[in-house]
């Protein structure tokens, strides 16, 4: 079992956990991910390794509650454990001194962006970071990002923090002003990565995105995670990625594949809520009986 050693609430829907997984911690590198399963009936869901400590045998995961599995994870407490954690999976990020780079992070994507930002800064890059979220309460790790950025721009959709803008706005401005941008990284919702890629394409700047396709095994066995490229070819995100050149990705198909199970996902969440509710009621009744007895 993979015990939860720390739990922290980063924003309304985003939580951070430190999990005991020594085999993964020993091998992990920035950009790689794990697959976790909550319990014996759980699905296998991929999560980026946001940080790791080989000596302590721990990894850090940061997740946004978007559906049944992540909502259930959010209820887990220190001392609880995941049924399974397997990894590290996927290729690590290639860290080099590229010159000046722009790091774009949206929502929960800021978490996996952070270790890459830190590594790039330590490798000597000039780092400009742009982070954004829907509103102030969904934003986190601003200070951490600032510590490894030469320049940090914060945006929110509603202007409750930083600039009232989408991350692509300041990005486009910088690209127009500066001719020395060597590379752009973008991690966040697929739609955000799509528009970041569209923004950098006219400038011909290599743009690395970290794809979050639906996965099962994470080892190249099912092909469910496949991404289609603009030239019609395709690859498996779990073993060939998760990072790809955003200019090659067929974003529309990627977005459609991501929403394929929407109806079932809603049913799963509802089923779980009903069930969790019944459990709560049962616990309450039990408490009352105890109090009376």
């Amino acid at each position: 079992m993979y015990e939860i050693l720390e739990k922290e609430v980063l924003s309304e829907t985003v939580k951070r956990m430190v999990v005991y997984a020594p085999r993964v911690a020993r091998k992990a590198r920035a950009g790689q991910f794990v697959i976790v399963r909550n319990d014996e009936k759980g699905e296998r869901i991929p999560l980026t390794i946001a940080d790791f400590d080989a000596e302590q045998g721990t990894i850090t995961i940061i997740f946004q509650e978007v559906g049944k599995s992540t909502a259930q994870m959010g209820q887990f407490q220190v001392g609880d454990a995941f049924a399974n954690v397997v990894g590290p999976l996927g290729h690590a990020t290639e860290i080099e001194n590229y010159g000046t780079v722009i790091m774009v992070g949206g929502g929960v994507g800021i978490a996996p962006l952070f270790p890459i930002t830190r590594a790039l800064k330590q490798a000597g890059n000039q780092v400009i970071s742009i982070i954004g979220a829907r509103n102030h309460s969904l934003l986190f790790w601003e200070e951490r990002m600032r510590a490894y950025s030469d320049e940090l721009i914060v945006c929110t959709d509603d202007g409750s923090r930083g600039r009232k803008a989408l991350v692509t706005e300041p990005l486009k401005e910088i690209l127009q002003q500066r001719k020395d941008i060597a590379r752009v990284w973008a991690i966040g919702p697929a739609v955000m990565m799509k528009f970041v890629s569209a923004a950098t394409q006219p400038f011909g700047i290599p743009t690395i995105v970290s794809l979050n396709t639906i996965m099962i095994d994470g080892t190249g066995m099912c092909g469910g995670c496949r991404v289609t490229f603009t030239d019609g070819g395709s690859q498996f995100v779990c073993v060939d990625g998760p990072e790809f050149d955003g200019h090659n990705v067929d974003w529309n198909l990627l977005l459609e594949r991501l929403s394929f199970y929407r109806e079932q996902e809603q049913r799963a969440l509802q089923h779980w809520k009903d069930h969790a509710c019944r459990l709560d009621q049962a616990a309450e009744t039990l408490e009352k009986e105890r109090a009376h007895g």
């Binding site: 009936k41 699905e43 099962i216 099912c222 092909g223 079932q264 996902e265 049913r267 799963a268």
Partner: peptide, 22 residues
């Protein structure tokens, strides 16, 4: 077929939503 059968067998999708995998 690997994905289809893995969802159905290993992940017990035939018992969704009791089991999570759709």
């Amino acid at each position: 077929a690997n994905e289809y059968l893995t969802r159905a067998n290993l992940m017990r999708a035939y018992r969704f939503p009791e089991y999570d995998t759709p």
